[in-house]
């Protein structure tokens, strides 16, 4: 079991993830779209860049209407980002197994606080999805599976924090592998597609001289 999770399944999951994600991105980028023949009013390039970064900030009009989602959303995504890329065990894993180089990990307390924010965020977001009737109606099975799978990955990681039980480490890794396999076929792809999406929208607006 351990050799399967650490060996075959890991490489399989990684292959599915890399091929799936790059395949999706290539499809999106190469998709044919209508050529805009109008005279550009402004630079499409600067518009694309501006939008890519300006969309990281919350929209004022949305904030007042869906405050929980905005606040919990930021909590979840920022927390997840920190704990995913700056937790000491994650940095060590990436250095040893994938990248070959590492970076300074966050101190333990920051890792813990970040994961607490992420946990609170994901719980509230999923509950909002379930309690708000509109959110509930527009949610597909994919949304629930993605949320619960992400939550389980985080939870198993949290339970394995002592880093001393092989079974707990394997459970965490197994769930990560399931997530990696599921990733390219789900809305989790937004972790990558937000970039071309914003760039495209930004370029389109920029070309028309819309300051967005």
């Amino acid at each position: 079991m351990a050799t399967f999770i650490d060996g075959f399944l890991w490489y399989f999951a990684l292959a599915v993830f890399v091929i799936g994600v790059s395949g999706n991105l290539v499809t999106i980028i190469l998709a044919s779209r209508k050529v805009d023949l109008s005279v550009p009013r402004d630079s499409a390039f600067s518009g694309a860049l501006r939008t890519l970064f300006s969309r990281f900030l919350p929209d004022q009009h949305m904030l007042s209407r869906i405050g929980i989602q905005v606040v919990a959303g930021y909590m979840f995504h920022l927390g997840l980002f920190i704990l995913l890329f700056f937790a000491a065990p994650h940095v060590a894993f990436l250095e040893e197994n994938i990248l070959g180089f590492g970076w300074t990990a966050a101190p333990h307390w920051l890792f813990i606080v970040a994961s607490q924010f992420a946990f609170l965020g994901i719980i509230m977001l999923w509950l909002y999805r379930m309690t708000n009737s509109v959110s509930r109606l527009i949610s597909k099975l994919d949304d629930h599976v993605a949320t619960i799978l992400t939550f389980l990955v985080m939870l198993s990681g949290c339970l394995a924090l002592l880093e001393s039980f092989e079974t707990l480490r394997l459970l965490h890794r197994f769930l990560v592998e399931l997530l990696l396999i599921y990733f390219p076929f789900s809305r989790l792809m937004h972790a990558f597609t937000f970039v071309p999406s914003r760039l495209f929208t930004g370029a389109w607006f920029g070309r028309r001289g819309v300051d967005s």
Binding site: I112, V113, Q116, F119, L120, I123, C158, L159, A160, L168
Partner: peptide, 22 residues
């Protein structure tokens, strides 16, 4: 049980402050 208790302890420690926030 040791495995269970270890996960319980780590989970309990991490979720405690979340309870406080809620």
């Amino acid at each position: 049980f040791s495995l269970l208790a270890s996960s319980s302890k780590e989970g309990h420690n991490l979720f405690g402050p979340i309870f406080f926030a809620s």
